Amino acid sequence: MRIAFVGKGGSGKTTLSALFTRHLAHSGAPVLAIDGDINQHLAQALAPGEDNPSTPPPLGPALSDIKAYLRGTNPRIASPDSMIKTTPPGRGSRLLRLLGDDELHSRHVSRAGGVPLMVTGEFDESDLGVACYHSKLGAVELYLGHLVDGPGEYVVVDMTAGADAFASGLFTRFDMTFLVAEPTRKGVSVYRQYRDHAREFGIPLAVVGNKVTGEDDLLFLKEQVGDDLLTHLVQSDWVRAAEQGRAASEALDALEPHNRHALTVLRETVDARSRDWARLHRHAVEFHLRNARAWADARTGESLADQVDPDYVPGPAALS
């Protein structure tokens, strides 16, 4: 299952992404964390006891190589240069298994706090004024588009803050989206935007309250988001200590019981869902055609609608 954590900057989105990923890894489940935020802090959140946790070579700068690899022998893609972030897989494309023994995983996965991690890369000085961060996220979109993950496998993505995720079709690539919200007006401000877009495309969305200090906070969240409020986490001394580098214990078992229960609720919610391969592929094709018409045909000088393979069957059947 593919899970996105979204929310306003400062809501605790990265912290929740890391806690949930560690919760899954602690159970022995195959899990991959992906840092898709412009502020690359997921490695530190996954390894709170390490001053400078190692990160893998970022995906963003390797986008051209990733395109060439995933293109495989797909005859509908003329060259890697004509491949864009929304190009869907077709017959001949290289498909990926989660944490498989392949070129892409071997180059771009390392471990932070014992958890497999991919990163998009920072927005650096060479990007200023000439690029947007979504060009780096294109590598994540292509990765998820070519990934054939199986039951009991998890990909957890810490997304960009606010509503920036809607600048691409990446938001449709998930089985479940958790919106992290503090109990403040600003904290829930992004919720309505996500709710409306998620409903339009049939994307399951649940709100996770964070930094809740009492009944008044919880009542506020219920009034603002209604039945979309799935669970909440209370203000955590353990998390604050970890963020300050003074955690008495790095073990997740030391997290407050209420917060550990909230992580269990998140997993139960994810596990209750089933993968809809047809929906994922339908959205991939839809956003590819949108991008082709809007800019990509003109930029490449090709009709990128021809990259869509009408006979491609998404999902495990494509592996054969």
Rank of each mutant, 00 (worst) to 15 (best):
A4E: 08
F5I: 14
V6R: 00
L19K: 10
T21K: 05
R22Q: 14
G28F: 00
A29H: 08
P30F: 12
V31C: 11
L32K: 07
D37V: 08
D37P: 05
Q40K: 03
Q40P: 02
S54E: 14
P57E: 13
L59H: 01
A62R: 04
D65R: 08
Y69N: 02
L70P: 03
T73I: 00
R76E: 11
R76W: 04
D81G: 10
D81E: 15
I84W: 03
P89N: 09
R97W: 00
D102P: 04
S106K: 14
H108K: 11
V109D: 06
R111A: 15
M118H: 04
V119W: 03
G121L: 09
H134L: 11
G138Q: 04
A139M: 06
H146W: 09
G150D: 14
V156Y: 01
M159C: 13
A161D: 12
F166S: 07
L170M: 12
L170Y: 06
R173V: 07
L179I: 14
A181L: 05
E182Y: 01
G187Y: 02
G187H: 02
V188E: 09
S189P: 01
V190S: 11
V190C: 01
Q193A: 09
R199S: 12
E200P: 02
A206C: 12
V207G: 10
N210A: 11
K211M: 07
G214N: 13
G214K: 13
E215Y: 00
E215W: 05
L221K: 02
L229I: 14
S236L: 09
D237Q: 14
E243W: 04
A247L: 12
S249C: 12
E250V: 14
A251H: 15
L252C: 00
E256N: 10
T264P: 00
T269P: 06
W277H: 14
W277E: 15
R279D: 09
H281D: 15
H288Q: 13
D297E: 10
L304H: 08
P310G: 10
D311K: 11
A318T: 13
